[in-house]
């Protein structure tokens, strides 16, 4: 990410970073610059809501009530409205997630090819349950609907990296690779 990011793409950065700064200000520095660029691309402020929530989540790691209020202030929307929209979309974490958000596709394409075994392996090795964060704060494993790469089952996305053709026996290696 650089200061020179083109306005056309400033809002299209759905990013889940390993490093999360839940208390970081919204927005400053390069993020302030991106925020302002986003606003130039739409005829009204409301339309910037999804990009700005993505931006906030990139910084803070999740969409907390404080984030919702701040985003509402920035875009002249009520907190209830922002909460309503944020809760409609599955990518906005309304609760904190681990350093690595592991999303295992269980869509029909992957399910036909035993995606559940991959998901179970992740849960077993991270010692978590679906949606819960491991005690060390490192992992949150969730099952997600079709990630749209059905020819490469099972598809797993960790933060913003996509892994294709993941087999249950490869899960351990994948987890090691993360660290």
């Amino acid at each position: 990410m650089s200061d020179a990011m083109h306005p056309a793409i400033a809002g299209a950065q759905p990013s889940q970073r390993a490093e999360k700064r839940p208390e970081a200000p919204l927005f400053e520095g390069a993020y302030q610059d991106r925020f302002e660029k986003i606003l130039t691309r739409y005829p009204d402020k409301r339309a910037a809501l999804l990009p700005v929530l993505h931006l906030a989540q990139e910084v803070r790691g999740w969409v907390s009530p404080q984030t919702i209020r701040r985003v509402g202030e920035l875009l002249d929307l009520t907190p209830a409205y922002v909460r309503s929209v944020a809760s409609f979309y599955t990518m906005f974490n309304l609760r904190p997630v681990g350093k690595y958000l592991i999303q295992v596709c269980v869509g029909i394409g992957c399910d036909l090819c035993r995606a559940e075994e991959v998901a179970e392996k992740f849960l077993e090795l991270t010692r978590t349950r679906i949606g819960e964060t491991s005690e060390d704060g490192k992992y949150t494993v969730i099952e997600v609907e079709c990630l749209g790469a059905c020819a490469f089952p099972t598809v797993v996305q960790v933060n913003d990296k996509v892994y294709e053709n993941v087999k249950a026996e490869e899960v351990e290696g994948l987890l090691k690779e993360l660290d």
């Binding site: 209830a80 409205y81 309503s84 409609f88």
Partner: peptide
């Protein structure tokens, strides 16, 4: 507002 979606939806404030 409506919070969440689908059959999980409910009405709430902030």
């Amino acid at each position: 507002q409506v919070i969440q979606r689908g059959h999980k939806g409910y009405i709430d404030t902030m």
